[in-house]
Every structure is written in structure tokens, then in C-alpha cells.
């Protein structure tokens, strides 16, 4: 099944919103794939980071339902290498924020093993809460 991507007012508004929230201009993306090749988390992702940039450009909101935006660990490997000076981690954060601000969390405390929790340095909990919950 080939999916149809509609270009219309809604798609353009979505792209604009992500651009504004991230401070990036996704239309500058060259689609060269350096981000993907640099990404340590790529094996866990369902779409590649460059595909994420593309879907934002097209204004396809399904990008928010991907695992990729949550898997991104903000390690800035892509940021350091992007030939166009773009920061895909900011785009991923913007997409996460759109979800989180609708009170849709990616991580739930009740799933955690309390014994395991004791082992972590505090920064793990702070970081994960900041990134994965609203």
C-alpha cells in the first residue's frame, strides 16, 4: 500500500509550526543522510532521521507517531556533522514537545521496577522525565 501525502493548508501549517518550535528550517535539508549514518540509535528507529526531516517538510503529521522521535537521545552526532548546519535533534524535540504538550507521555512510572530505580544516578531520572514526559 502506497500512502498518499496531501499537501494542503494543514500540512503547511504543521511544517511551519515545527520550524518555529525547533528554530530550524527543514527546507534547507539536503536529504544526504549524514544524520542517519551518524545516529547511534538508528537500529531502534522506525524511520531514519533524514526521513523525519522529509516528513516535516511535507507536513505529514504521521511523523509524530513514529518511534524515531522518542528514540533520539539528543546526542548531537547528527548536529555535529550536518553539512547544511541543521540540527535534527531540535526537530525531534519539537515533535516530542507537540505530543507532550497534549499530555501524551512516552514513559510511564508504573512500568518501572522500583528495585532497578534505586541503582540509577539521579541524572537519569531527571533527564528521562524531562525528555519523555510532559
Amino acid at each position: 500500500m502506497i500512502k498518499k501525502i496531501l499537501i494542503n493548508d494543514a500540512s503547511e501549517a504543521f511544517c511551519k509550526k515545527v520550524n518555529e518550535l525547533s528554530g530550524e528550517t527543514v527546507s534547507r535539508c539536503d536529504q544526504c543522510g549524514t544524520c542517519t549514518g551518524s545516529c547511534p540509535m538508528i537500529i531502534e528507529m522506525d524511520i531514519t532521521p533524514s526521513q523525519m526531516m522529509r516528513l516535516v517538510l511535507l507536513g505529514d503529521e504521521s511523523v509524530m507517531e513514529t518511534k524515531t522521535i522518542w528514540i533520539c537521545a539528543s546526542c548531537y552526532s547528527c548536529t555535529a556533522r550536518c553539512p547544511r548546519g541543521l540540527d535534527a535533534s531540535k526537530v525531534a524535540e519539537a515533535l516530542r514537545q507537540i505530543k507532550l504538550r497534549q499530555a501524551i507521555d512516552y514513559m510511564h512510572m508504573e512500568d518501572m521496577d522500583p528495585e532497578e530505580l534505586k541503582k540509577f544516578p539521579q541524572m537519569v531520572l531527571v533527564a528521562a522525565y524531562r525528555k519523555l514526559t510532559g
Binding site: P40, M41, A73, M107
Partner: peptide, 14 residues
Amino acid sequence: RCCGSYHTLVDKDV
């Protein structure tokens, strides 16, 4: 290369 950072909390296998 990234160690996986805070994902250690949600997905230790990764």
C-alpha cells in the same frame, strides 16, 4: 559514540 543516555531507564537492552 553515544552510550544511550537516559534510555537506560526505559530500554536497558538498547
